[in-house]
Each structure stands twice: as C-alpha cells, then as structure tokens.
Write a protein that binds this DNA or RNA. Structure first.
Lengths: 221, 221
DNA sequence: GGCTTCCCTGACGGGTCGTCAGTTGCGGGT
DNA sequence: ACCCGCAACTGACGACCCGTCAGGGAAGCC
C-alpha cells in the first residue's frame, strides 16, 4: 500500500459550505451521470451541460461540487482505484507452485478481465490523462497497478528462493506480467475482431503468467 | 496485409476544390501543428482555434481541409499506421531459434519501444477513440498491430512444426505477445516511476517473447 | 494589365463555459 | 403557525469557441 490516493473526507462546495444530505445526494447523482455519459459517449465531447441535463439540474449546480469535468472524472477514478485491491488479494492468496499455480494464474487472468469489463470507461480516461501528464490521474494510474505488481514481485521472489534463480529482476518481471494482463484485458475486443477466441487468449495469458512467476513450463493442461 | 487503411489520394476541400500546391502545404502545416499540440497539450483541450493560431492561419482555413479536429487526428493516425510495417519486417526477417532467437526478441522489443516513443501522442488518442467506439479509429487500431500479430503467429506455427506443440492457439499466443510488447512500450514511464529500470524490463520482455514464440526457456544470457 | 482560379479570412448566429447575485427549499426554534 | 437561517439551486451574463458563409487577396496565365 504505497502512494495512497488522496482522501477527501471533508467535502467542500465551491463557496466553502459543507454539504448536507441533500447536497451529497446531488453530488452523487452528478457523478453517476458522469459515469453514464462516459460509458455511452466520448470523453472529448463530455460537456458539463450534458451531465447537468442528465442529472436534472443546472450547470451552475455542477460547478458547486466540481471545478470542471476533469474533477468529476477524477473522483470516479479514485473510486475505481480502491477496487483494485481485489487483484492484490488474488495474488497474495494464490498457491503458485505446481498444478494449483496454473489455476491461480487463471483466476488472476479472469479477475483482470472482470475488472476491466467493469471499469473500462474510466480506465481509458485515466490512461489517457496519465499519458498526457495530468499529475492527479498519473498518481491514480500508478496506484492502480502498483500494489498488485509489488505483491506479484514478492511472490516471484519467494518462488525464486525456493526453486531457482530466473535471472531477471522480480519487479521488472512482475511489471511485465501486469502489463500483459492489463493490456490483454483492455483489448479483448480487438482480439475477437481478429478472430482470436477469448478462451484461447485466456489460456495463453494464464500459462504465460504461470511460467513468468515460476520459471517453469506450464503443465500440459 | 489485411484491412488496408482507407487511402485518400484525391483530396478535396470543404467546397469541393482539388487543392493545389499552396493548399496542400497549408494542410500539411495544419497537420504538423495538430501533432505538435497533441504532443504538448491534452486531447480534450485541443481546439481548432489553437491549431489555426499555431499554424498562423484562421479557423475557417482549417475547416477547408478538415471537418473537425478528429478528422485531422485521423489523418495523423493513418500516417502512423503505415509506419507499423517496420515491426512486421523485424518479425519476418528474424531468426528465432537458439541463441539468435533471443537477439531477435531483443530487436523486436527495442523496435516496439522506439515505435511508441515516436508515435506516443497519436497512439494514445487512437487507443481512446477505438475504445470509445469511433469506427474509423477502431479500424486503424486494428490495422496497427494486426499485421505484426499475424506474422508472429506464422513464425510460431513454423517453430511448432519444427520442434514441439505448445498446446496453444498460435494466433492467441501471438496476440498476447503483441499485447505485452505494446503495453510495456506504452508504460515504460510508469515502470521507471515504480523504480523498475528500463533495461530490466527490456530483458524480461525479450525473454518472455522468446519463450512465447519457441516454447523453450530462454538461454542464460 | 486583365482575367481566372485558388486560397484565405472577417464576421456572424449558435452554443458552452464558468461566475455571480439572487431565489427557493428545508429544518429547527419558539 | 410562524419566522429565521442556512443549504441548495438557478437565471442571467460576458467570454469564448464552433462552424459557415460571402467576399477579398494572392498566384499564375494570357
């Protein structure tokens, strides 16, 4: 748990008030509408006036709770980042040696696929923003996969001590594996457009993860 | 070579003219400025008025050559996609067995890193647009890595016949390897922010690519 | 110079942005 | 029941960008 995503327990409106129940509800509704519009429309064309209309309120209200559209998206991104903890848990609790290792790899692969399916619209905006140099989004982008990478590196280190030296830096190895998981999860659809079946990719990735962690060739099945 | 990126040899301006030398030069300047602003600023805040100012012309001129900002970006994306041929060449011309295989994997890894370094701003917009469902960008996104994936699958198939059955679908395997290469190339910077040295990642990826293609554990060094 | 073709732009109606000052709604006190 | 005070919302406004004309310059040709 490094780089904690900045907590914002004491909400303040634009004019310094502490919002009450009604205010927080409105804010929440605006967030949900933002997420919804991000799911159905393009980030570039996301306007505060649209969000406000969708939420049945006026643009001025939006500005009470968020400085701009990016701010609202940032909050969504923070919420998503918290959820990434579940990926860490799967790595930590998995048994990675022998045949059960391949099962653990499959579980991890599935978890990545699920996480991406759930958060895809927000993730892609975080990716873009991080690449573009937005400091806040970059922090989130970092936190998003850092913990699972570190946990994976720990696991690799343990296995290395047990069995054999892989001749690579565990953290780099973990980083690469996470990069694979993330990108494959992100691009399932491209794969299917290429005529590659999801099930096949899933196997390839899991085997890859398995041997990346253990240094062994995966079991036949 | 599938899904050829739509060629646009006969340029037309908004009012149906075929642009002459001066016109094409202006158009080109607008494209370059678009690329530049994409490099230095955010996609979301990219306005035609900024591009026009940067190019020393008026917004109305921009609209003579492009329907909107997305159109201009699309052209940049098409140009980039053409350049991806060089990745295919490296796969096709590499010798993938034995020790020279690892060298080929390193060359391929480096080529991906280089390609991303060069085209990063455009790639990230293509990624976003493709995810968001923009048909034109999705086509480019597809074409971008499809050819190298197919070539890689061919290579894998050849090696499988020679040596052993890997128990995976070659195309899925190739897709995963390309996903790894692409995502690692995209996120070098994240890695360095995590304290992972680029050189270490490079090795991890190349070894991974090697064993993904050959089904063998990589040579010690 | 005069003409044609190509190229560019000023200006405009329409829309969003972000910010006020001011209105409405809501709960608590008496 | 009434009022009060604050929380919550909004209409309206100047600023700016959008996308589109009709009209004015520049380049080439005779």
């Amino acid at each position: 748990m490094v780089e904690p995503v900045e907590e914002i327990d004491d909400l303040r409106t634009a004019d310094g008030r502490v919002p009450g129940r009604r205010g927080r509800a409105t804010r929440q509704r605006l967030l949900e509408c933002t997420a919804e519009m991000l799911r159905t429309g393009s980030y570039r064309s996301l306007k505060v006036i649209d969000i406000a209309r969708e939420a049945g309120t006026s643009p001025a209200t939006f500005y009470q709770y968020f400085g701009d559209v990016e701010d609202a998206v940032l909050v969504l991104a923070q919420e998503m980042a918290l959820d990434s903890e579940r990926l860490v848990r799967i790595v930590r609790e998995g048994r990675w040696n022998g045949r059960s290792g391949l099962r653990a790899a499959l579980r991890l692969t599935d978890a990545f696929f699920g996480f991406w399916d759930q958060h895809r619209p927000v993730i892609r905006v975080v990716d873009l923003g991080a690449e573009e140099g937005d400091r806040r989004l970059r922090t989130i982008h970092l936190a998003l996969l850092y913990n699972v990478t570190v946990q994976l590196a720990e696991t690799i280190k343990g296995i290395q001590a047990d069995e054999r030296n892989l001749g690579v830096d565990p953290l780099a190895q973990a980083g690469m594996l996470v990069a694979t998981l993330a990108n494959v999860a992100a691009h399932q659809h491209s794969f299917e457009a290429w005529g590659i079946r999801a099930a096949d990719v899933r196997i390839s990735v899991a085997r890859h993860v398995f041997s990346g962690i253990t240094g062994q060739r995966p079991p036949a099945k």
